[in-house]
Amino acid sequence: MSSAFAIEVNGLRKTYGKEQLVAVDDVSFHVNKGELFGLIGPDGAGKTSIFRMLTTLLLPEKGTAKVDGYDIVADYKQIRKTVGYMPGKFSLYSDLTIEENLRFFATVFGTTIAQNYHLIEDVYVQIEPFKNRRAGKLSGGMKQKLALCCALIHKPTVLFLDEPTTGVDPVSRKEFWEMLKRLKAQHITILVSTPYMDEATLCDRIALIQNGKILSINTPQIMIQQYPEQLYAIKADQMYELIKALRKYPEVMDCYAFGEYAHVSFNGSFEDNKLKTYLKTEGLTQIEIKPVPPTIEDYFIKLLKN
């Protein structure tokens, strides 16, 4: 079986419990071979349910999906042989050492560490000095690296990483994404989910997801280009006062805090000086106004508010 896409999802739906709470609602997307595809959305958006259906752990209620050309329901055994999966709450065996964990997962997949060492080498050398340490005694960042090694050891064609960076500090997050970039160079297709919007730009293409529905699929660059209004970043000495003042200003369409600035979009024309004067009368000082390019987070906020 061959297919143009590494992952192909058509109208996937999943509900839970008696109340039929909809976790995944008519989701369709595809991932090209060798692509780094991100599912971006907050907790409870349905990311994990999608991952579990694609890794054959859950049966979809409606819709179909193929991974590597195999149907997720009929050919589940094939999929289990070829994919790598790192679940969100994955915490490895805390009472086994790094090496034992890795060796165990290698044998489960019918391979050895030596056979595919080149794949994990990059990541493994960072934790190898501690290979006799038990996984329970590792830091969050190290655990995450070990988990990635375990998911990679059998040379999967498609790698599923469910929220690999949640709860991890910014430095470790950055390192993790650098590792993913290098993996991509090895022609492994990667589907990754994250609640961190700033990680979106590191993916080839992304799907923004909320309440089980996909809001938008595209490359991060195109999404940013599609942002309809000119966005301004405004700063003053008092952030909260600034936002309250801006929200009262009639021409302001939307306004929210964004780091040290407030991101603001306007209805119709916007006059720099008029706004500055207004803000000054509101008691604000050190006012700075500048146009800024939107980010994925701005785009996501826009989608959520519509």
Partner: peptide, 13 residues
């Protein structure tokens, strides 16, 4: 609980 069962299920084992 630790999520390792998920990984074991998604394996040829």
């Amino acid at each position: 609980e630790t999520g390792t069962m998920e990984v074991l299920l998604v394996s040829p084992f």
